[in-house]
Every structure is written in C-alpha cells, then in structure tokens.
C-alpha cells in the first residue's frame, strides 16, 4: 500500500524537465542544476535497471525497462545529443518496448509455471556481476581520460549527423537498411502460421 509513491516517481516529468534543461547546454563548467539533474536521472536509470533484475513479473520487467530507456534518453539529452535522445524514445520506448510487451502477451499462457532461477544461479550471477562492476569502476576511476574539448556540438547536430550518415558512414547506413529489410522478411516468415489462411487479417500484426 505504501509503495504507491514509488511508482508515482515522475519519470516522464523528469524527462520533460531535463529536456528543458538540456538543449541550452553551453559549457561543461560547474553547473549545479545540471549535476542535480544528472544524479536524479542516473538514479532513475540504475534504479529501473535494478528493478528489471529484481522483478519476477515479466510485464513489470518491461516497465522497468521503460524507466531505463527513458533515463538513457534523458542522459542523451543531458549530453546535448537531443536527436539521439528522441530517436531512443521513438525506436526503443515507442517501438521495441511495445514489441516486447506484445511478445509477452503472445507467450504468456504459462499458468502455474514459475520461471524462477535457482538460488545457486542467482548467487553466482550476483558474484560475477558484482565483481565485474567493482572491477570496471576501479579501472574507470584510475584511467586518466583525455580532457573534454570545450563546448561540444550542441547546435546543428542533426544536420551534421545526417551529413556523416550519407558520406563517411554511407556503407554501414546502407547495410543497416538491408539488414532491416532482412529482419522484416525474417520476422514475418518466422511468425507466420504454418499454413497461411485466407482470413481477413484479423490478428494483431507486428
């Protein structure tokens, strides 16, 4: 009962707020507002990721994933990568996540079957992941990263991105489109009924 406020944590409100805070984005100098925003968003992101790990219900996992995806989009906003942030929202939150929820609903008729991991597995995974995290953080903190260049591309990112996609990255871009086509056909082939009936397309399509 008392857990209600947790779920009322205004994730999308934060999203809005930092969309607001983002695109001015001038100097990487000390900006307490920005730091506060970062810590809030980071907390939401990692919190939802942890929620993903803890949740047993697959729909709740998907919703926690929404929190993580939204948080990452906000982080992109904070890093002035507004275009990426928006694309993340469109493709991930608006597309992939819905496909995942669809998948959950299409495959959810497993009453009474509890898909819980064995404690040993959980323990092993915890140890491995914890060790990895500690190791990574230790390495990260010790590495001397090159200093940030002043400014950073805030304005005109979209045009620059488009330009590089159609010049330097033309081949990967085209490959990606071929891949998408292949995926489209493949997904349609995989998910189609064995004998396509001449019905009037009643089922939900993906």
């Amino acid at each position: 009962m008392t857990r209600g406020w947790l779920y009322r944590l205004p994730l999308p409100a934060l999203l809005a707020a930092s969309a607001l805070a983002a695109d001015g984005a001038a100097a990487p100098a000390a900006d307490p507002g920005k730091a506060v925003a970062f810590y809030l968003v980071a907390a939401v992101t990692v919190g939802s990721a942890l929620g993903c790990a803890i949740a047993t219900n697959i729909v709740r996992m998907a919703m926690c994933l929404l929190g993580t995806l939204g948080g990452v989009a906000l982080l992109y906003f904070l890093m002035s990568a507004t275009f990426l942030g928006v694309i993340q929202l469109i493709v991930y939150a608006g597309g992939t996540l819905i496909v995942i929820v669809f998948g959950v609903m299409l495959t959810s008729r497993a009453y009474g079957v509890k898909l819980r991991p064995r404690p040993v597995e959980v323990l092993a995974a915890l140890v491995v992941c914890g060790a990895l995290l500690v190791g990574l953080v230790a390495v990260l903190l010790r590495t001397d990263w090159p200093a940030a260049p002043a400014g950073g591309a805030a304005e005109g990112t979209v045009a620059a991105l488009g330009g590089s996609l159609l010049s330097v990255y033309l081949v990967p871009f085209e490959l990606a489109s071929v891949l998408l086509l292949a995926v489209m056909i493949g997904a349609a082939y995989l998910a189609q009924p064995a004998l396509p009936t001449a019905g009037d397309g009643a089922g939900p399509e993906e």
Partner: peptide
C-alpha cells in the same frame, strides 16, 4: 558499467 552489470545479471538469471 552499472547498467551493463544489471543487464548481465538479468541475462544470466
């Protein structure tokens, strides 16, 4: 890194 570890944990468990 934290996200990565969470993801790994989810994938393994």
């Amino acid at each position: 890194a934290a996200l990565l570890c969470c993801g790994l944990y989810v994938m393994t468990t």
